[in-house]
Amino acid sequence: MKRFFKSFVYAWEGMRDGFVNGRNMKSHALSAIIVILAGWFTGLSMTEWLIVLLLISGMLALELMNTAVEYVVDLVTKEYHPLAKKAKDIAAGSVLIFAIASAVIGCLIFFPKWFG
């Protein structure tokens, strides 16, 4: 049981490191705060809140995975290598895909409330 609870401590340390040292994590966190405030002022429905919170948590989790890939690649090689670049670019691309999808879904949720 002790190892089970210790795994939460390690996960918390990983999240903290991602927020402190991750290049883009602070901007994602700021965006999340802005979206949450906008949702609060807009009066989202329960379903809309569930979608927004799922998108926010998915974005933050995916950015943490991207940061983990960057750490592993940097651990393996400090020199430029085409495969290292590909690994980092593909991980960043996955974040970009989710960010674009999240922005589109956010517009579909918020625009009708603001401009409809």
Rank of each mutant, 00 (worst) to 15 (best):
Y10V: 11
L75R: 10
L53H: 09
F41I: 14
I33G: 03
V52D: 11
I33Q: 02
N66I: 02
I97G: 07
K86M: 13
L62I: 09
D17N: 08
E13D: 12
G18L: 10
M25Q: 15
V72S: 04
K85M: 05
D89S: 13
G93Q: 07
E13S: 04
A11Y: 11
E13Q: 11
E48W: 03
S57K: 00
A38W: 09
V20L: 15
A91E: 03
L64E: 06
D17T: 05
N66T: 13
V20Q: 14
F8A: 04
M59P: 02
T67Q: 05
S31V: 11
L50T: 08
W40F: 14
S94Q: 08
L96I: 07
I90R: 09
L44R: 07
W49N: 04
A91R: 01
Y71C: 00
G39N: 05
A101F: 11
T47P: 00
L37R: 00
I36V: 14
K88F: 03
G58S: 12
A92G: 13
L37T: 03
I34K: 10
L60N: 05
H81S: 05
F98G: 02
G43M: 07
A99F: 08
G58F: 13
V20E: 14
A29I: 10
I109N: 05
L37G: 08
M65G: 13
S45W: 08
F5V: 02
L96Q: 03
L55R: 04
A38G: 15
H28W: 04
A99S: 14
P82Y: 14
A87V: 06
S94E: 09
Y71Q: 03
E48M: 03
L83F: 14
L75S: 10
L108G: 01
P82V: 12
L37E: 02
D89F: 12
A61P: 03
K85Q: 10
A38P: 02
G93P: 08
S94K: 11
W49I: 06
M46N: 11
A84N: 14
F4Q: 03
A101R: 01
G43H: 08
A38N: 03
R23L: 07
L50G: 15
A101P: 01
W12S: 09
F8W: 09
S45A: 11
A38E: 04
G14N: 15
S94R: 08
L96D: 05
L60T: 06
V69I: 14
V9M: 01
I51A: 07
L96A: 06
M25N: 09
V69K: 04
V76N: 00
G39T: 06
T77P: 02
P82A: 13
V72P: 00
A87W: 11
F5W: 08
A84F: 09
L83R: 12
A87G: 02
S45M: 10
M46L: 14
K78V: 01
S31D: 07
V73Q: 00
A29E: 05
W40G: 01
M65I: 09
L53S: 09
F110G: 01
F98C: 02
V52S: 10
E48F: 02
I100E: 04
S27L: 11
E63D: 15
T47N: 07
C107Y: 15
W40C: 07
A68E: 10
